[in-house]
């Protein structure tokens, strides 16, 4: 799922900030535009798109720094695949 998840997450971030040049490793916090509103949108997007619920103890800044770390979060929260 990770590859697909990364692309979907990047698409979401780029759609919100089309002027920003972002790749899957880039720290979006370092770009300076993340606030509590965008954090809320990110959480809603991830929960809706990947059908997961992010528990409070996973709502840590390091999980949301980049498309890579968010995709890893999605992998951890997704039901085990066979």
């Amino acid at each position: 799922m990770s590859g697909n998840a990364k692309e979907q997450i990047l698409d979401f971030v780029r759609a919100r900030y089309p002027q920003a040049e972002i790749d899957e490793t880039q720290d979006i916090f370092a770009l300076g535009f993340v606030n509590s509103l965008f954090a809320m949108e990110l959480v809603m997007f991830i929960e809706k798109t990947f059908e997961v619920t992010i528990p409070n103890d996973e709502l840590k800044i390091d999980n949301f720094r980049s498309a890579n770390t968010m995709a890893e979060l999605v992998d951890r929260l997704s039901p085990a695949r066979v």
């Binding site: 916090f29 993340v34 606030n35 509590s36 509103l37 954090a39 809320m40 959480v43 409070n56 103890d57 709502l59 840590k60 800044i61 949301f64």
Partner: peptide, 14 residues
Amino acid sequence: LGPSGFTAGMVLTG
């Protein structure tokens, strides 16, 4: 109530 750190503002936002 809710998360601490950078996501704490989400409680207020939501």
